[in-house]
Computed example of a mutant assay.
Amino acid sequence: MTISTPRNAQENTPSAARPDVVAGQAVPRINSRDLFRQMREVEIAHEGRIYRLRLTQLNKLILTA
């Protein structure tokens, strides 16, 4: 009998409790550097509205409508 041990603690966590898994699939991850591309602000169009995602002076993210 072989007993396998998980590589990390998340492997034993049900997918419903893992923030990186939605409906059994991994959530895509985008690096903020790729998103901002040397800018401090990007606009996101969603359902007819424009949202602004900004980097603060302390490198925090703020999303506003």
Rank of each mutant, 00 (worst) to 15 (best):
I44G: 05
V22G: 02
R29E: 15
A23R: 06
N31Y: 13
V21D: 02
R52S: 07
V27G: 05
T13C: 11
N8E: 10
N12K: 09
Y51K: 01
L53S: 02
G24T: 03
G48S: 05
L53A: 04
M39D: 15
N8G: 09
Y51C: 01
R37E: 14
R49F: 13
F36K: 01
R33P: 06
R33H: 14
R54V: 05
Q25N: 12
I50T: 09
N8H: 08
I44S: 03
G24K: 01
D20H: 07
L35E: 03
E41A: 11
A17T: 00
A45M: 12
D20L: 10
G24I: 10
A23D: 15
N12Y: 07
G24F: 14
A16V: 07
E41K: 08
D34N: 12
N12T: 07
I50V: 14
A45S: 12
L53M: 08
P19A: 12
V21N: 04
S15N: 06
V27L: 15
L35S: 06
P28C: 07
Q10D: 13
E41V: 06
A17I: 00
Y51S: 02
N8W: 08
I30D: 06
R29W: 11
N12C: 09
N8Y: 07
L53D: 04
D34A: 11
E47C: 04
R40A: 14
H46G: 02
A26H: 08
T13W: 08
E11P: 00
H46K: 07
V42I: 14
S15F: 15
P28W: 04
I50A: 08
E41Y: 03
R37T: 04
F36A: 09
I50F: 07
N8F: 11
V27N: 01
V22C: 10
R52E: 03
Y51F: 14
N12F: 11
P19L: 13
A16E: 10
R52A: 05
V27F: 08
D20G: 05
V27P: 01
